[in-house]
Design a protein around this nucleic acid. Structure first.
Lengths: 346, 346
DNA sequence: CTCTTAACTGGAAACGTTTGCTATAGGCAA
DNA sequence: TTGCCTATAGCAAACGTTTCCAGTTAAGAG
């Protein structure tokens, strides 16, 4: 392994460039470039000669220079609304895997539920000249949204967001179907006071879930009770305060749906305060694929969506965009998985 | 907000360059560069003029070109051994936050517990000319390790790894102390058959933990029982098969320590198979800060380490390295947090 | 034997910045 | 007035690649 030793007299701090390879191989720069990049106009002999010298010198092409010249960075930006939500870790991971399989790297940036941060993140990624951006937006109507989504030559994939007037690709989960199944099941089991804690109404998943929720009541010829729906924020503190109110209601809810990680955190704290156990005194259903749920407790009923599939699909869509294909929307199914916690005391 | 509209006649696909800013402001390229980068040799009038034009045109400097010219990418590579371990999500997140606060981006790559992947990851990051690499290595003696850690001009921070003959910085957790506390506590409570499932011996954390483990027995004038120590792999399957063996032992262990995420997964499955509950028939202690533990069940005793502090510290060390400071090792304390699960049936 | 063509190879210009050096202008001291 | 210094601005050369274009060689056709 000759490339391991610090190459004759040359300083170990200096990186070897294509120029040195060319010199040592006694060929032109352009030939080195072609030989190593798999260009067809190169003789076998030349290619071998160059490759040998490159290996010998431990040449590693400078991707920065390649990017500048070729205009392509082979990098995708991933803007995530709230990295504290473990669902996004799962999502980003599967997405990164798929991208890497296709020769792309990922730069992940976190907006921390803040629109200004989000805007800065987009700007950063543009300055880095990423080839595409996958984004989980804080909201669907930020003042910067037009600027950031209609950018020059940079395909966008939106995650679970609908922004009108933008032709970006998107991966949407069909939350409504799973929620409909779940609530229908609860109703069948005799539940009537079904509470729902979920995010704010200005994003697609909330709207979509509520559609499924209300439709389940309609289909059962029941009226949905508005004061059992806590809509307005994804964070745990919000969920906690609203869960407290819900639990003190009269009549008390006999079942409760948690719309995502934050809601689950808040609700589980509120339940503990009242010494209630999920699935015992109150039926409980979690939305989203929360990795720790599957990992640790196997009795929580869930409206499942395949988060890793979403990540992969996002990668596929962004690669399509880079290839110049038209943006398109991809829908991921959800499914109610019934386990012990949705039984409750009824 | 004039920069939002697609700037007079110019194609929206073309990015505006420093050259166009210079032309429109009727000054030299170099003046634009200096004005925007805060160089001192610029008059106030020039700076204002340039900034106004830059804003007007929506100029966003090309970081690729900047990097090529300046030799600095303001990017840190993060090589993670196994992204499936949720601890790393936590770690990477806090690290990224700290880096970003200092104007750096992070590229995260996953080795998937494979040495070849790890080697490729290092190579990729070098080609991208990252300014530094933070790495959680698969093992401490891969054949590529010398090449990858003694690289040119690129500071390295190792996470929980000791590699001799390399002068890289490192963040090490003092696992031994926490494990010692935990085991001592168990012994005091009357436990004698204490099992330990942990990773392979060729990495620092395992060795370090075992030191704490055996020392606790020595300090109590007891002999550690080698057949209760399952050493050899971090993955859940390994842990599962070994936990099965341990649970069938005679006399059965009355307490069990899980060395990290994989071990915990395996053990919890093995316990379920035998219909045992953590903290009931068998005392249970988890090592590492596993986010889902804190989040979901509040009764698991833990040898806690502040994972986010590790991430921050890694960021600090890598930034020091970039500043040209000498590598150094930073130690993070661990602490036994006693909760219900370590009571067991004794 | 010459001409055409194919198959390579080399030279040099770009990509968008930063930065060292040089030039100009005005201010101030002599 | 002259000379020098300071503050500022411009020019042009890098950074390490890719890629267009032109040139060379050898082979095959006539």
């Amino acid at each position: 392994m000759p490339s391991e030793k610090s190459e004759n007299g040359r300083s170990v701090n200096q990186r070897v460039t294509i120029r040195e390879v060319a010199a040592k191989a006694e060929v032109a720069l352009s030939s080195v470039s072609r030989a190593l990049s798999g260009h067809p106009d190169v003789s076998d002999e030349m290619r071998k000669r160059v490759k040998d010298v490159a290996d010998e010198l431990g040449y590693e092409p400078n991707l920065v220079a390649q990017s500048l010249r070729s205009g392509v960075t082979r990098t995708i930006g991933f803007v995530v609304r709230d990295i504290n939500n473990p669902m996004f870790a799962l999502l980003a991971r599967s997405c990164e895997q798929e991208l890497r399989r296709n020769g792309y790297s990922m730069i992940l940036v976190n907006s921390d539920r803040n629109i200004e941060n989000e805007n800065r993140n987009f700007s950063l990624l543009r300055r880095r000249r990423v080839d595409g951006i996958i984004a989980s937006l804080v909201s669907e109507d930020s003042p910067y949204i037009k600027k950031n989504l209609a950018g020059p030559r940079c395909p966008i994939v939106l995650l679970d967001r609908e922004v009108k007037g933008i032709n970006a690709s998107a991966v949407l989960a069909d939350h409504a179907a799973g929620v409909h199944q779940a609530v229908t099941q609860l109703i069948k089991a005799g539940h009537r006071e079904i509470a729902f804690v979920t995010g704010s109404n200005n994003v697609y998943p909330t709207r979509n879930r509520l559609q499924g929720f209300t439709k389940a009541f309609e289909d059962a010829n029941l009226k949905v009770q508005p004061d059992l729906m806590a809509i307005g924020g994804f964070d745990a503190d919000y969920a906690l305060s609203h869960a407290r109110i819900l639990l003190h209601r009269n009549p008390a809810p006999t079942a409760i749906l948690a719309g995502g990680h934050g809601a689950l955190m808040g609700i589980s704290r509120a339940l503990k305060e009242k010494n209630l156990t999920m699935g015992k005194e109150i039926a409980f259903i979690a939305l989203d694929q929360l990795p720790y749920l599957e990992v640790f407790s196997d009795n929580i009923s869930t409206v499942y969506r395949d988060t890793e599939a979403i990540g992969r699909e996002a990668a596929i869509l962004i690669l399509e965009g880079i290839e110049g294909e038209k943006p398109r929307v991809s829908v991921i199914e959800t499914e109610f998985i019934e386990r012990a916690s949705s039984q409750g005391s009824i």
